[in-house]
Write a protein that binds this DNA or RNA. Structure first.
Lengths: 146, 146
DNA sequence: AAACTAATTATAACAATTATAAACTAATAA
DNA sequence: TTATTAGTTTATAATTGTTATAATTAGTTT
């Protein structure tokens, strides 16, 4: 099924006239198959076996391309590096403050909050962002041990 | 009333054994009275009249101190600089993608989302963050004109 | 193949933030 | 009072994530 996701992502690129290079293919593949929310640097390191002289700029460039094609979302998490999330279906993130792990969870969109905000502020709404912070089971356990 | 906020903030610092320096006083005062969500640099520039040789590091240091005392919240907004929000009562932010303006709006806390997330992920919840992105009335107007 | 466009690379630049070390301040103790 | 100590500020250097630039390479179109 992840192959389907990759295929459909490549289709999206093709139809919008974006050239599919080996690097782009590999970055997309990694984003989908790793099932994680890697930073640009993690992607770079993960692929340096396959592409020994790929530049970091290539990773950043292509993540921007993917973001503009709405294939990935950029998550700015605190003061550290951005993380990139392959867009599948709508979901939110819960982030462990102990180890930084990000876990997806599904929840019906917060449309009523958007409407409320539009009403009281007069803004035209584009999107929203919501994240929950806490401690994952593993880190909770370690805390009780010590 | 903003004086009360300042007084209570200074009390919080005093009771936790944090020394109240003129710089800290001024930064807090600015955060409260400006009613905005300034970046570290904006604070720095706003106070360079009063403290001609204050260092940027001082601003950052003290914002960290305040954050650790839970007097301010750090808002990481996209790829640009962090903004700092004096914590009063619970509110959310709506951010204009045109001009970067941040407007507060009040909405009952999203407790049910937190509970749901805790249930499906097994995390212990600490907090959440929610922001809405859109276009403010001023920027909307300009867009229709052009 | 020639010409053109897009992508990659290597590297430099940049901006936000943090770390370091020296100088200074303020509170407390002798 | 002076000495001591810990905390703070300053100035500056270093770091980190990211973007810009220019040259090279690859791919596409005619």
């Amino acid at each position: 099924m992840s192959e389907m996701q990759l295929k459909s992502a490549l289709d999206t690129l093709k139809t919008t006239g974006v050239r599919i290079t080996p690097q782009r293919h590999a970055i997309l593949e990694y984003l989908i198959e790793s099932m994680s929310h890697p930073t640009a640097d993690e992607i770079y390191k993960a692929l340096e076996g396959k592409f020994p002289n790929m530049s970091v700029a290539t990773v950043y460039n292509n993540l921007r391309v993917f973001r503009e094609s709405e294939l990935v979302k950029e998550l700015t998490y605190g003061d550290s590096a951005s993380r990139f999330d392959f867009v599948t279906n709508k979901h939110y993130h819960i982030i462990c403050e102990g180890c930084g792990k990000i876990v997806d969870f599904h929840y019906p969109g917060l449309d009523e909050v958007e409407h409320f905000a539009a009403h009281v502020t007069g803004f035209k709404i584009n999107s929203h962002r919501m994240e929950i912070y806490g401690t994952c089971p593993t880190c909770s356990e370690q805390a009780t041990k010590s």
